[in-house]
Amino acid sequence: MAKKSIKIRAKMKGDEITVKALMTHPMESGARKNSKTGELIPAHYIQEVKCEVAGKSVMTAYWNGGVSKNPYLSFKFKGASKGDMLTLTWVDNKGASESAQSKIG
């Protein structure tokens, strides 16, 4: 995958960091049918999203095909400082994986 598929931003306000991320993924639940052939479209969705700061996990999300296409994710945490690197990694049910980094600002 050549194109950047994750957009991520981490902003600090007071001592709380708000993370917002947008991923590009079909998030196919496996229950949808191809309208032409009537065949089921195989499931293809992100199973796991991990967020780490300096090797410490701050949030791990587990999903299935019930999350919308091109998923959006936001969460808040404390205990990191400005300039720290935040890493987000996702793994889908086909074993594909991608990650992105963002500096907390």
Binding site: S29, S57, V58
Partner: peptide
């Protein structure tokens, strides 16, 4: 009421605030 009701489970690390936001089907 979804065919598969559980959509997401967010494991919060230490220092996390009780806040998550996402989009579901």
């Amino acid at each position: 009421n979804n065919p598969v009701p559980l959509v997401a489970n967010f494991g919060m690390g230490e220092g996390s605030s009780g806040f998550v936001s996402t989009r579901i089907k």
